[in-house]
């Protein structure tokens, strides 16, 4: 976890190493201003499905993301992309995500998906539930594709929830995305694919901010970190 100063420094370093293309464009775009309000900030809520939980071994199977602006989720911008993985999908994770080898073979090249995603992420804050995972996988994917890492400003709904209710929450179970959503009277989706979870996560973020400070005056710097 970096502060803004370290993040800026790392960004500069990465920019020098990055090949021209989507990643360089991203790194070249200034980070969202510290002074802008929570309301005026643009966000991109993201969720991945991966082949497993091991950052070294496992790969991204699908991206689901949707944009949030003026604290409202714009479903027009909802995107769901399957990625063609290098390795075949281990049986146990396929059961969770219902993505079988056949369907994922119809997926797109990781680079194509990343290019499109980074283009959108420019100037936005990433929303994710337990963003350490999302940012690490993204970082690894960037290194794989562009030979260079990344720095992302993130609003982590899990961290926000933990901070908000430090005293009340006793088990990690209660911090799971769907448990959090339930506490805010948010809908429960039946299907847990990357897109539905990204939408759930964005909804949780809206709920958290509604219960936080005045979004027109509260600064975004109070909500975000820089990862990985």
């Amino acid at each position: 976890m970096l502060n803004r100063f370290l993040a800026q420094r790392k960004l500069k370093k990465l920019l020098n190493a990055a090949p021209s293309g989507a990643l360089k464009d991203y790194l070249n775009t200034p980070l969202p201003s510290q002074n802008q309000s929570v309301f005026e900030t643009n966000y991109l809520a993201l969720d991945f499905e991966t082949t497993g939980f091991d950052l070294i071994k496992d790969e991204i199977l699908s991206f689901g993301y949707v944009q949030v602006s003026h604290l409202s989720i714009d479903l027009k911008t909802a995107v769901h992309r399957l990625v063609k993985p290098d390795q075949s999908i281990p049986e146990n994770s396929a059961i969770v995500h219902h993505i079988l080898d056949d369907t994922s073979m119809q997926g797109m090249q990781l680079k194509t998906v990343l290019d499109e995603f980074l283009q959108l992420l420019k100037g936005k804050v990433l929303i994710a539930h337990y963003a350490a995972a999302e940012s690490s996988y993204l970082n690894k994917a960037c290194q794989q594709v562009y030979g260079c890492g990344i720095v992302i400003p993130v609003a982590d709904t899990l961290m926000i929830e933990r901070r908000r209710s430090r005293r009340n929450i006793t088990s990690g179970q209660q911090l799971k995305l769907h448990q959090c959503c339930r506490r805010y009277n948010l809908p429960k989706y039946k299907l847990h694919d990357a897109l539905n979870d990204a939408i759930s996560c964005a909804e949780l973020f809206l709920a958290q901010t509604a219960y936080w400070k005045n979004p027109y005056t509260a600064r975004i710097s109070q909500l975000i970190n820089y990862l990985p």
């Binding site: 989720i73 479903l75 909802a78 809206l206 709920a207 509604a210």
Partner: peptide, 11 residues
């Protein structure tokens, strides 16, 4: 229509 919607939250 599903794709034209926006989602908002009110406490």
């Amino acid at each position: 229509i599903s794709k034209q919607l926006r989602i908002k939250y009110f406490r």
